[in-house]
Amino acid sequence: MSGTTPAIIAENLHKRYGGTVAVDDVSLHVEAGAVLGVLGTNGAGKTTTVEMIAGLRRPDRGRVGVLGLDPRRDRAKVRQVLGVQLQQAYLHGALTVAELIGLYRSFYPAPRPAEELLELVGLGEQRAVRFEKLSGGQQQRLSIALALAGRPRVVILDELTTGLDPRARRQMWKTIERLRDEDVTIVLVSHAMEEVERLCDHVALLDAGRVVAFDTPAGLVSRAGAENLDEAFVALTGKELEEAQ
């Protein structure tokens, strides 16, 4: 895929909260149609990084481009082509799954059909259930469906499968593979090595706000002289990757 324009460019991003440096000079490029996994322990700066790419947080320094647009300055344009699943977000609690899907679809000119969205995340049977009555995993799946409602060309998913049961997790993986087949560019924040190995073309390993390694999953393993990605992670960061469930 070399030679194509990057769909996402992040250059020298810095972000500090009070005295704490959350992101310290992070640069990332994601080719159009590629899947990038962002790995790291809690507090490594993953969420802050992707939220700066999504235009939710203003970098103290550095530059972000999504399909050649600045997500803060060109907000109206970027929002049409970028779908985001946030780690910390809530939806109208008293609305049902179907109503929320209808609402979020209405924001886009050519949305994905509601039935397709329900099927992608396996919530067909919960369509008449209010958001506040859904389990945590179901709420997360709905949040993913809403990120895909506008047929985005770029998708940012923060903690795709954390907290999902194995069946739902495999279903989300299939969904990501389907998006990949549609040439959607995807940034995946993850705790799960298996997920990253299966889905991602490249992995950015974050530690203490910096990118300590950027490679293909196989490249990371061989670079670290490890047997698998788990071991590579420990070798490259000196930390165990806890699976936040």
Binding site: R79, Q80, V84, L86, L91, F107, Y108, S143
Partner: peptide
């Protein structure tokens, strides 16, 4: 916050 990442 969730609405802010849509075109709304």
């Amino acid at each position: 916050r969730r609405l802010s990442v849509t075109p709304a």
